[in-house]
Design a protein around this nucleic acid. Structure first.
Length: 250
DNA sequence: TTCCAGGCAATAC
DNA sequence: GTATTGCATGGA
């Protein structure tokens, strides 16, 4: 259950949370547009007159442009399950180096070769199987419309976060992505409960914000960036910098 | 050396 | 239905 509506029924009121708007405005002002999802061909920081911009392709919301870029985003969404992006990038580059960053090529690949290529991102036995299953599905997709969420969820290896990441960043469908970082931030701020479900949190964001895929993309990316700075698990809570959002909402 | 990272499915209660 | 466990690598 989400805090803020604990002691009364929502009645006709949507569980709008104005804090979520304030948080977004703060993060955007603080870090600027993040330009997610990362693509090998459009990676890195861009130089601007004021210095380096954090983010992958900030301001370009036409990406992914090509069918192969759409596939690359989906592939990354699977490979990054419980794994840091630098390791996923390694895996993607190994596929690219052998000319296999491509749905048809992966479909043709021997599973053992696929495992070897994606080894750096961990869980390679499971992930190779997931990638194979998804690739077969992808090749049969109707190119004129995005896949249905339920259909993605029915594939072995694709859970709610992976499905939503694909929909939001590959197919530009306005569906909010909840991840470990988002959960950590909301719980810490007291906006969500420790045992809020994926669906609870997703619904909270979607009912509090205009239904806009660019907004959803930026917001999720900003939460990840913020969590990396203030919510690292490794550093003890004492040695961690105080999160500025706590003061913003007080 | 140990802990962690942009989850998920299988299994156990 | 909810809680726990296995999956695996490279970086801090």
């Amino acid at each position: 259950m989400v805090l803020g509506i604990v002691n009364r029924k929502p009645l006709n009121r949507e569980p709008m949370n104005h804090h979520l708007i304030s948080i977004y405005e703060f993060l955007l002002k603080e870090y600027g547009p993040q330009g997610w999802w990362p693509l090998l061909g459009c990676s890195g920081r861009k130089a601007t007159p004021k210095g380096w911009v954090v983010g992958y392709h900030p301001g370009d919301y036409e990406l992914p442009r090509t069918r192969s870029q759409v596939f690359e985003v989906c592939l990354g969404a699977i490979l990054t399950q419980n794994t840091g992006w630098p390791q996923v990038e390694m895996a993607l580059r190994r596929l690219q180096a052998s000319g296999c960053l491509d749905a048809e090529r992966i479909w043709q690949m021997e599973i053992e070769d696929l495992k070897e290529a994606i080894r750096p991102c961990g869980y390679f036995n499971q992930k190779a199987k997931k990638v194979k299953i998804f690739t077969e599905y992808f090749l049969d997709l109707d190119r004129n419309r995005p896949p249905a969420r339920e259909e993605l969820l029915s594939l072995w290896g694709i859970g709610p976060e992976t499905a939503d990441s694909m929909l939001l960043y590959a197919f530009r469908v306005p569906t909010f992505v909840i991840d470990a970082y988002t959960r950590r931030i909301l719980t810490s701020l007291g906006i969500a409960d420790e045992k809020s479900s994926y669906h609870d949190l997703k619904t909270l964001f979607e009912q509090s914000l205009p239904r806009d895929f660019i907004l959803y993309q930026e917001y999720h990316a900003l939460l990840v960036e913020h969590a990396k700075r203030f919510y690292q698990k490794k550093s003890e809570s004492d040695s961690r910098l105080p999160c500025p959002l706590a003061r913003l909402l007080s």
